[in-house]
């Protein structure tokens, strides 16, 4: 720091000459990032054309035709409903289960037992969605364990093919996400809890507070900032309901509830070759994402929390 201040700045090009090695270490990688992240943005022009791969960017310009089509397409409305519903369920479940589990784990005094349960619960985070989809379809088969358990509990008379029940699909995705990520998501809350001053708990105990009142009055306020930051950040991703799990578990029977915006894009582009409409759909999602993210960032700043961007 002091050296940077004391040194008289010798002009941009001259400095750059002495920093040739730093330039060589960074410039090619930055160019690579530009090529793979920013250059494809030029492809958004496809959304305003009747894009034909053979003609490339010399295709016919059609203005906002595809966006008009998109917003009048009933399928798109349905897809938006599914996307928002699934990401809302994911959001609520994700928070509720992770916070609940973190609070419970935090109360477990047996260190080794706690460690063991945590280690096991992190495991699914490292599995691919393909594996998870394989496990889920085994569990939910008509002779699968889920039906058996429902039978035991007297909640269902007949075994059902759950992946064939359209209305069940959102909840399957929600619980699958919980299964995969709940353990992993507790980590950040447990870290926040470990920062709470133990003296607070001792003082509460002397005052005769029970477990629940300690949780309500010390633990929850202690992790509140973490919850708020994560909540705001996640609201910025509300257009992302996930793609892989829906793609892998969808079938003809649940299509009306399983198709998300990403699958819509894939279907139009890959199956029907309508790259223009697919790009318009993707572009709509990206733009909404960026707007939501900026809003979330702004709200975060207003609330005095750390800015995310």
């Amino acid at each position: 720091m002091p050296s940077a201040v004391l040194r008289k700045s010798p002009g941009f090009w001259k400095s750059l000459m002495t920093q040739r090695q730093l330039l060589w270490m960074s410039l090619p990688i930055v160019l690579y990032v530009i090529l793979f992240t920013y250059v494809p943005l030029a492809g958004w022009t496809m959304a305003f054309q009747d894009f034909k791969p053979a003609k490339g960017f010399a295709s016919l310009w059609v203005g906002v035709k595809w966006f008009k089509y998109l917003f009048s397409d009933e399928l798109f409305t349905m897809v938006m409903r599914n996307t928002l519903a699934m990401s809302f369920i994911n959001l609520v479940f994700g928070f509720a289960f992770a916070i609940g589990l973190a609070i419970t784990l935090n109360e477990v005094k047996a260190k080794r037992l706690k460690r063991f349960a945590q280690t096991i619960s992190y495991l699914p985070h490292f599995l691919s969605w393909v594996v998870v989809a394989g496990l889920v379809s085994t569990m939910l088969a008509s002779d699968g364990v889920f039906n058996i358990v429902l039978g035991w509990l007297g909640l269902a008379k007949e075994p059902k093919l759950w992946l064939g029940e359209p209305k069940a699909f959102w909840w399957i995705v929600g619980f699958t996400n919980v299964w995969k990520e709940v353990g992993w998501n507790t980590i950040i809350y447990l870290a926040a809890m470990s920062a709470i001053d133990p003296a607070l708990y001792e003082a509460a105990e002397i005052d005769g507070c029970g477990r629940l009142s300690k949780i309500r009055n010390i633990t929850l306020p202690g992790i509140k900032p973490t919850i708020i930051v994560l909540l705001i950040m996640n609201l910025g991703w509300i257009m992302e309901s996930g793609f892989e799990i829906q793609y892998l578990l969808r079938n003809g029977m649940n299509a009306d509830y399983s198709q998300s915006i990403d699958i819509y894009v894939v279907n139009y582009g890959m199956r029907q070759g309508n790259y223009s409409l697919a790009t318009a759909g993707g572009m709509f999602k990206s733009v909404v994402n960026i707007l939501l993210l900026l809003t979330a960032n702004w709200v975060s700043g207003k609330l005095g929390e750390e800015k995310l961007v």
Binding site: T37, P40, L41, D262, V265, S286, N289, L293
Partner: peptide
């Protein structure tokens, strides 16, 4: 935060 989307990336 920037993602051009599936098909623009595909054509690249």
């Amino acid at each position: 935060y920037v993602n051009a989307g599936l098909f623009p990336n595909y054509f690249l």
